[in-house]
Computed example of a mutant assay.
Amino acid sequence: MKKSAITILGIFVMVVALMSTANKLQASTGTPVNDTTGVHDPMLQVANNYGINALGIRAIGTTGITYKHFNARGNAFEAILGFGYNSFSITGLSEKYASPFDTDIVDMYYGFGGHVVFQSDSNLGVDRNRFDNDDDEFGVGVDFILGLEMMIPDTPLALSLDIKPFFEVATTGNAYFGIDPGFGVKVFF
């Protein structure tokens, strides 16, 4: 319980710091919030400036390589190839972007998807007690995601902070729930 409280507190502090930094960056750049049509989608602007794809890394919970592809409506598909001790996972997520803050540097994203996780003769994953046999095991799960993404002005780089709660059923016959927080760095191309 103590570890969960510390994780939640850490996420809260990082969100506040991220929002504060975004407001300071917006104030220093003087970037307008709305374009001439009255509607502004920062991720579409990033896609137009730097590309519709992003490649990066994710750490804290599921740690690995991420790939994100944006469509013309500002929605994204994200794939995460996660690595652990003698294990790996593949996650696919459909994400929607929104701009709930008074800035065009920080966006919120949310969505859902699924994952498959494989392990070989070892423990793995966010909860190392999920697979405790000496045999090869795998699990299948449903994922949800809620996060913030901050663009670094005048660069193709973005920082993200999210939680990716999941529900998983494993070949051990057990079911698991996890919060899976993540911090990411992406480059658009």
Rank of each mutant, 00 (worst) to 15 (best):
D136C: 04
L148Y: 12
Y109T: 09
A76L: 09
F70I: 04
F101A: 10
R130K: 15
G139S: 03
T103L: 06
G147F: 09
G82R: 03
D132V: 12
G82C: 08
D134M: 10
H115R: 03
G125F: 03
G125A: 09
G113W: 01
G113E: 00
A98G: 11
E95M: 14
F88Q: 00
E137P: 08
D143I: 06
D154V: 10
V140Q: 04
M108R: 04
K96S: 13
A76S: 07
Y110Q: 00
G82Y: 00
H115W: 00
S94A: 15
D132K: 10
D143G: 02
G114K: 06
I105M: 05
A72D: 15
M151F: 03
L93Q: 02
M150D: 05
F83W: 09
L93W: 10
H69W: 10
P153D: 09
V140D: 02
I80L: 14
S89M: 02
A79N: 09
G113Y: 04
G92D: 01
G141E: 07
D154L: 06
I80W: 12
F88M: 14
T155M: 11
G147T: 00
I152S: 01
E78I: 04
D136Q: 08
R130Q: 14
K96Q: 07
G141V: 00
V117P: 02
T155R: 11
G84K: 02
N71Y: 07
I152Y: 03
F77P: 00
V140C: 03
K68H: 10
I90F: 10
G74L: 12
S120P: 05
M108I: 14
F70G: 04
G147C: 09
G141M: 06
A98P: 00
N123I: 14
P153I: 07
G114M: 02
D121R: 15
A76K: 07
T103N: 12
F144P: 02
G147V: 04
G92N: 03
V117H: 06
V106F: 02
I90H: 00
N86M: 06
R128W: 14
G114H: 08
R73E: 12
P153M: 07
S89C: 07
R73D: 11
E137I: 08
R128H: 13
G125V: 07
D136F: 04
I90R: 10
